[in-house]
Each structure stands twice: as C-alpha cells, then as structure tokens.
Amino acid sequence: MDIMGLMKKAGAMQAKMAEMQAELDNITVEGFSGGGLVKVTLTAKGALQGLSVDPSLLKVEEKEILEDLIVAAHADARRKAESLMEEKMKDLTAGLQLPPGMKMPF
C-alpha cells in the first residue's frame, strides 16, 4: 500500500475513533451484585452514573456487606463496559492490519 493510501486510511480511522468516543459517552452499562440488590450504572467509558441499593441492605450491622456488594457491582459494570469497548474497537479496526499484539488506545 502506498503512503498516501495509508495516510487516508489513518485519517478515516481517526474520524471514526472520535465518533466512537462520543458514542461511548452516551452508552450505559449496568452491573449487579447480591442477586440484584445492588446496581451500578456506568457509561461505557467507566464514569459512574448511578447507584441503586435495595433498602433491605441499609442496616448498620450490614455496612461491610453493602460496601463489598457496591464494589462487586462496580466491577461487574466495568467488565461489561470494557467488553463493549473491545467490541466497538473490533468494528473500528476491521480490515486494518495491525501488528500482532498491538492494541488501539481508547
């Protein structure tokens, strides 16, 4: 491939990357723990948008359990966000020949 063709392809990919980044700000994922008693909502980029806790967990003696469930729900949502971002990147880089092991930055 000639250098001009490569530059053109890189420019198009950069534009698509900007579109994808804007889209990821508007996509939310939810993570759950405790059988759904705790729910965390994140943007696909990982920004915390919401937290929902079942009232049955709001007891002083269950404070540590609640804290652990919040952390677990956040981790669940984060995994989903990362998976979504990987999927979007696969779509974006389809047909682009990257060296083995090279990943595109988010």
Rank of each mutant, 00 (worst) to 15 (best):
S56G: 00
L51T: 06
L37C: 12
V71D: 05
K63G: 03
G36D: 11
G34N: 13
G34K: 13
G46K: 03
V38Q: 06
D54H: 14
K45H: 10
G35I: 13
L48Y: 03
Q49Y: 01
K45F: 01
L58Y: 00
D54G: 03
E62N: 14
E61A: 03
G36W: 07
E62T: 10
G46A: 02
L37T: 14
E67G: 14
K39I: 06
T43W: 05
V71W: 01
A72W: 12
V40E: 07
I65W: 04
V53N: 03
V40I: 15
A44Q: 02
S56V: 06
L42C: 06
P55N: 09
E62F: 05
V60L: 11
K39V: 10
L42T: 12
L57G: 01
V38R: 11
G46Q: 01
D68S: 14
L48R: 06
T41N: 00
G35M: 12
S33I: 08
S33T: 06
I65L: 15
T43G: 03
G35R: 14
V40N: 08
G34E: 08
S56D: 07
A72C: 11
L48S: 00
A73E: 13
K39S: 05
A72S: 14
F32W: 11
A44S: 04
S56Y: 02
A44P: 01
E61F: 02
V60G: 08
Q49E: 09
L57A: 02
A72R: 09
L48D: 03
L48N: 07
L51V: 15
V53H: 06
V71T: 10
I65R: 14
L69V: 15
K59T: 02
L48H: 09
G36Y: 09
E67N: 14
F32I: 04
L69R: 14
E61G: 06
K59L: 08
P55F: 04
V53P: 02
G50P: 04
A73C: 08
K39C: 11
I65A: 12
P55Y: 04
L48C: 09
L51A: 05
A73P: 03
P55Q: 12
K45T: 10
L37H: 11
L66G: 06
L37V: 13
V71C: 11
G50E: 04
L66C: 12
G50L: 04
K45Y: 03
V53R: 01
A72Y: 08
V53Q: 07
